[in-house]
Amino acid sequence: MSLLSQAFRPVGSNRVDPMLVALWLALVVLALVWITPFIFIVFTALKSSDAVMNTSAFALPTEPDFGNFVSAWQRGNFSTTAFNGVIITFIKVPLGLFISAMAAYALAKVPMRFSKVFLALCVFGTMLPFQVMLAPIFKQVNAFGLINTYPGIILPYLAFGVPYQVFILHGFFAAVPKELSEAARIDGASHFTIFRRIFLPVSLPVLSALLILDFVATWNEFAMALVILQDPKMWTLPLGLMNFQSQFQSNYGELNAAIIMTVLPAAIVYLMFQRYFVAGLTTGAVKE
């Protein structure tokens, strides 16, 4: 009771507010609706094909069957797609953040001609939907002979990830007090040193938020990968799932097992880091 004793009281009041109780009930109901698809997916993944067709959607799987996961893993070539996802994400995300941070620092703290132009170009880029230009991107990657390669997918990912990250980090760096860097400049430190010694450390919260955001986005990306990774050996998890769906649509248990295996890594990463994520997003995107 002690935990709840503070609940339902509006700011600056000591009485339980009935409006808040009603609101809370509505929230719980809505949350149940929101979580229903997950329950349905897990239940189906644990059922055999016959059980799916002959029992109700919310019937508990009476004999949980993990065979679906095993066979979906093999049929969907998950070991390949997961490996590719790891390679692509683990190279792209840190590399992208690093070059974005460098660029953001240069735009925010180094007096340069055209820096306003570059920044405008960058903001423009944050709003440029690459889904619109899949064919020319494909053509460009192909011109470099990089179709079906890791660099071939990482380079466009970088190109379309950089603007947003530069934009956010620029806003953050610009707000860092001048005195902090001026002192170092007078001591004769180069911009490289100031960036590394002063700005990278203070931006760690923002960087970690961007890291998670970018990890999830890269891990889940579909349209660009669809165009550039044509070779099944190079596919990422979303491509693998799409192929699985079009091939084994009617094998409901395995399909749902495949969904769970595709979704789980990003969910785990998010749940592990969500504290930093929310904090970072707050400082970076909206408030500062």
């Binding site: 070059i99 240069a106 880029g125 690459f130 380079l155 466009p156 950089v162």
Partner: peptide, 25 residues
Amino acid sequence: RPALQGYVLLAPALLVYLLFAVYPM
């Protein structure tokens, strides 16, 4: 020169952005 340092820091991001986002557009 400081400005040159700035361009060096800016270059990788700018290059990849121009090549794979602006050029396709």
